[in-house]
Measured scan of single mutants.
Amino acid sequence: FSITQFVRNLGLEHLMDIFEREQITLRVLVEMGHKELKEIGINAYGHREKLIKGVERLI
Rank of each mutant, 00 (worst) to 15 (best):
Tyr45Ala: 10
Glu31Trp: 11
Ile52Arg: 06
Gly11Met: 05
Gly54Lys: 04
Glu22Trp: 07
His47Phe: 08
Phe19Glu: 00
Gly54Phe: 05
Phe19Ala: 01
Leu58Gly: 02
His47Ala: 15
Val7Thr: 07
Leu26Lys: 01
Glu22His: 15
Thr4Glu: 14
Lys53Arg: 13
Leu58Met: 12
Ala44Trp: 12
Glu49His: 10
Glu56Cys: 12
Met32Cys: 03
Arg27Trp: 10
Glu36Phe: 05
His14Arg: 08
Phe19Lys: 00
Ala44Leu: 13
Leu15Arg: 00
Glu56Tyr: 08
Val30Pro: 05
Lys38Ser: 09
Leu26Val: 07
Leu12Arg: 01
Ser2Val: 08
Glu22Thr: 07
Gly33Arg: 08
Glu20Gly: 06
Arg48Gln: 04
Met16His: 06
Thr25Ser: 10
Arg21Tyr: 06
His34Ser: 03
Val55Met: 10
Arg8Pro: 00
Tyr45Gly: 05
Phe1Val: 10
Val7Lys: 00
His34Val: 03
Glu56Asn: 10
Arg21Leu: 06
Leu12Ile: 05
Glu36Val: 04
Glu31Gly: 15
Glu49Gln: 12
Gln5Tyr: 09
Phe1Pro: 10
His34Gln: 03
His47Leu: 09
His34Leu: 05
Lys35Thr: 09
Glu13Trp: 10
Ile59Ser: 08
Gly41Asp: 03
Ile18Leu: 09
Lys38Tyr: 09
Ser2Cys: 14
Arg21Gly: 05
Glu31Cys: 14
Thr25Ala: 05
Gln5His: 11
Tyr45Pro: 09
Glu56Val: 10
Gly41Ser: 03
Lys50Val: 09
Glu13Tyr: 11
Ile42Leu: 05
Lys35Gly: 06
Val55Tyr: 07
Gly54Gln: 05
Ile52Ser: 00
Glu13Asn: 09
Val30Lys: 14
Gly54Ala: 14
Ala44Met: 10
Leu15Thr: 02
Phe19Met: 06
Gln5Val: 11
Asn43Val: 14
Phe19His: 00
Leu58Pro: 01
Gln5Glu: 15
His47Ile: 15
Glu22Pro: 03
Lys38Asn: 07
Gly41Met: 04
Ile24Arg: 02
Lys53Gly: 06
Gly33Cys: 05
Phe6Asn: 00
Lys53Pro: 00
Glu56Pro: 04
Phe19Leu: 07
Ile59Gln: 11
His34Ala: 03
Gly54Asn: 07
Gly41Cys: 06
Gln5Ala: 12
Ile40Thr: 02
Val28Phe: 08
Ile42Gly: 01
Tyr45Glu: 09
Val30Met: 15
